[in-house]
């Protein structure tokens, strides 16, 4: 056991109505490379391909990539509490602030809750009207407040205005305070989740840097890479035989008899296989477990039992290409 459990990073996404918060959250959910819990104001606007949705039970949508999207309609604090009580901790919690809310108020939760740390506050701005909103007599103060303590501004919808208007919008946001970091975006060019590694903000008035445990250090990773394919029936048996310390397993593999690769995702004891379009034909899985995860060689042996007899020929009659080793960058899970 470790003295202190790892803390989960929190990113708050704010911005006035119509700035593109939901578009950004849709993008993060669809492209999620690790297990995100995304808390949204309104499910109605979340637009995820039906094929990516594994389960939808009203208040929670579970995606095949392991991400979860929760509506905060039933009470924000209750929803967040439920997320924190999940047996398998999420890799990242992303919270959508209300269009008229102050994202910093939500970010403060990550400063006082010991199981969380604040990754970033991201505020989206609609390039077509942010300058007008900032000067609006009714909502100008509300909109200006949203930017007060953000780490990053996504100046969105820049594809809908010309370069001159984009510059004007950017200048209006930049004028709010020194050091505003602005990235221009459009629906087609949404960025991934930034790792802001906030150093400037601490929950302590004395400016002590909080002792944030490194997420990766508390978990063990295991990578399984083989040429060839799995036998479907034996794979089921092998997955059941994996030890409970393995929290999740994800990656590409091919099943004997299939023409293309599949995405294997296992969270706890639940797993799914979804056909994907990918050039890789081999097996490359990455697992994450608690720090008492058994030796990798032992885990390898369990999955090796599921390997199909190496075929001499592929289904098109050609020779199976030799196994290619794909270099893995640190912290990257090789699937899309």
């Amino acid at each position: 056991m470790t003295d202190k459990p790892p803390t989960i990073p929190v990113t708050v996404v704010g911005g006035f109505l119509g700035a593109g918060k939901t578009t950004y959250l849709n993008h993060l959910l669809r492209t999620g490379r690790s297990r995100f819990a995304v808390l949204v104001n309104d499910f109605g606007a979340v637009n995820i391909d039906a094929g990516l949705i594994a389960r939808h039970d009203g208040a929670t949508m579970t995606l095949t990539n392991g991400c979860v999207c929760c509506s905060i309609g039933g009470g924000f604090l209750e929803t967040l509490g439920r997320i924190l009580d999940e047996k398998i901790p999420f890799d990242h919690i992303i919270i959508e602030a209300s269009g008229v809310g102050d994202p910093w108020r939500i970010a403060e939760i990550a400063l006082v809750e010991p199981s969380l740390h604040l990754n970033a506050v991201i505020v989206l701005a609609d390039a077509t009207r942010i300058a007008a909103l900032l000067a609006d007599p009714h909502v100008g103060d509300t909109v200006r407040n949203q930017f007060e303590r953000c780490d990053l501004v996504l100046l969105n919808k820049t594809d809908l205005v010309d370069a001159h208007a984009t510059r004007a919008a950017s200048a209006a946001v930049a004028a709010l305070r020194e050091g505003m970091k602005i990235v221009e975006t459009s629906e087609q060019t949404m960025p991934d989740l930034p790792q802001a590694n906030r150093k400037t903000t601490s929950p302590f008035r004395a400016d002590a840097v909080p002792d944030v445990a490194d997420h990766e250090q508390q978990f063990k990773r295991w990578q399984y890479q083989r040429g060839g394919s799995f036998d479907r029936v034996r794979l089921e048996t092998a997955l059941r035989a994996l030890p409970p310390q393995l929290l999740r397993l994800k990656g590409a593999c091919t099943l004997a008899g299939d023409t293309g690769p599949s995405l294997l995702q296992m969270v706890g004891r639940d797993w799914s296989l979804t056909p994907v379009e990918a050039p890789e034909r081999d097996i490359l899985l990455v697992g994450v477990g608690t720090d008492d995860l058994p030796d990798p060689a032992e885990l390898d042996r369990i999955l090796d039992r599921a390997l199909a007899a190496p075929p001499a020929f592929d289904h098109h009659g050609g020779l199976q290409p030799p196994a290619i080793s794909i270099p893995l960058r640190e912290g990257q899970i090789p699937c899309r």
């Binding site: 924000f76 604090l77 509490g81 924190l84 108020r105 939500i106 939760i109 006082v112 809750e113």
Partner: peptide, 10 residues
Amino acid sequence: GIAARFRVFR
């Protein structure tokens, strides 16, 4: 406020 309340509820 929301953050302090959440902490206390936890």
